[in-house]
Design a protein around this nucleic acid. Structure first.
Lengths: 193, 193
DNA sequence: TCAGCCATGTAATGGGTTACATGATTGA
DNA sequence: TCAATCATGTAACCCATTACATGGCTGA
C-alpha cells in the first residue's frame, strides 16, 4: 500500500528527511529537530506523532515496537524506499509563493501610533534584543559546523538565518534613530532636517 | 458583557486595529487587510468572519445589519470603547519570543544534498526571483506612502519588509557563488582556495 | 449570452498547539 | 526526599485553510 504520488503536508516531508539520518523514535526526532530544522520548521510533539502515523499508512516509513522495562516502550521508525522516492520528488518541487511571513511584531508595530512613540521604541528595542540573542545562538552553531566538513545545505540555512537576524538588528538601529525625528513619514515636503 | 481582560488570538487584535480606520463589513476588511497588514498577517476570509463574531461576543465590536437589494445584505462592524481599550492594552504587551519563522524554502534547502547541486541552484534562483518581485511591490507602496505624510509605524513595517527582501536577494547571490565551490562546508582545513 | 468578477458570506476539513498522563532516574 | 528532567506518548481543543453557495453586474 505504499503510495509515491500521494500528497502530504510539508511537515511530513520534514520528518521523512530527518529519518534519512537513521531510524528514530518520536522522542529522538523531537530532539533531532530542535537542533536543526527546528529553527525554521518546528512542529509540536503531538503533530510529529501524528505525521509518523501518516508516514506508516502511506508506506513511507516502517514502524517497529521496542519493549523496554525501565523506560516506556517505544516505536522506532525507518524510512522505506518509497519514502525516499517521495522525499526526493518533493525536494524537486520548489515551494510556490514566497515564504509566508507571520509576524506578531510587525502586526503590533503597524498600529504603533495608537500606542505612542515610547511604546514603539520599547517594542523595537525588545525585538532587537531577541535578534541579537538569535544571532549569538547561530554563531555557536556555525562554529560547530565549520569544525567538521559536512554537507553544505544545512550550513546554508544557517547563513540565511544569520543574514536575516543581522538585517533585523540593523533595521532596529536605523529605526530607533528615525523615531527621534517624530512619528510621521519622512516625506520630502515640510521636513526641516 | 464587554470584557477587557479577555485573551484572544492576535488575529482578533489585528481586526480590531483595522476597525480603528472606521466601520467596515467583513468584505471591506479583507480588502483593507490585503493592502496593508496582509503582507505579514493574512487570515483567510472565513477566519476573519469568525473573529468578527468573537469580537461581538466579547463586546469589542458592535454589529449592524444593512439590507441591500442589488447586493447580498451585509453586516457592518464598529469598534466599541472596550474594544479600543483591549487593543491598546494588547499593543502594550510585546510578543514573547522572536517572530516564528516557518520557511518551506529552508526546509527543502536543508535536505539539498539529497537532491544534488543543480536542484539546489534552481531552488535558490527561484527564491531570489520571488524576493525581487516582492521588493518591487514594496517599492511601489513606498512611493505611495512617501507622497502623503501619514503615521510612521505603517511605513516602518514597509522598510522592515524591504530590508528583509533585499537581504534575501544578497544571500542568494552569495550562495549561488558559494555553490560553485562544491557541496561541502567551507572549513579551514583542506580547502584549496 | 456567457465568462468572469463584485460582493457577501457558510460549511467541511485538516493542520497544529496546549494540556494531560506516566513512571523511572538523577541531582540537590 | 523532593523537584527536576528523561523518555514516551495521547486527548482535547482551536486556529486556519480550502471548498462551497448565491446572485447581480460588466465587459467581450
Amino acid at each position: 500500500m505504499s503510495q509515491t504520488k500521494a500528497k502530504a503536508p510539508d511537515t511530513a516531508y520534514g520528518v521523512l528527511g530527518m529519518l534519512m539520518f537513521g531510524e528514530m523514535s518520536g522522542y529522538d526526532l523531537t530532539k533531532a529537530i530542535e537542533g536543526s530544522i527546528g529553527f525554521f520548521w518546528a512542529p509540536a510533539k503531538s503533530q510529529l506523532y501524528s505525521e509518523l502515523r501518516r508516514l506508516v499508512t502511506l508506506g513511507w516509513a516502517r514502524e517497529r515496537e521496542v519493549e523496554q522495562t525501565d523506560r516506556p516502550d517505544k516505536r522506532i521508525y525507518t524510512i522505506t524506499p518509497p519514502g525516499e522516492e517521495a522525499l526526493r520528488s518533493w525536494l524537486g518541487t520548489p515551494p510556490e509563493g514566497f515564504d509566508p511571513i507571520k509576524s506578531p511584531f510587525l502586526l503590533r508595530l503597524f498600529f504603533g501610533h495608537l500606542a505612542g512613540a515610547e511604546a514603539v521604541r520599547g517594542l523595537v528595542t525588545e525585538h532587537r534584543r531577541q535578534a541579537e540573542e538569535l544571532l549569538e545562538t547561530f554563531g555557536q552553531i556555525q562554529a560547530r559546523l565549520l569544525a567538521q566538513a559536512g554537507p553544505l545545505p544545512p550550513y546554508l540555512t544557517l547563513t540565511y538565518g544569520m543574514t536575516y537576524a543581522s538585517g533585523v538588528v540593523d533595521w532596529c538601529d536605523r529605526t530607533l534613530e528615525e523615531l527621534e525625528e517624530g512619528m510621521t513619514v519622512p516625506g520630502r515636503k515640510g521636513g526641516r532636517g
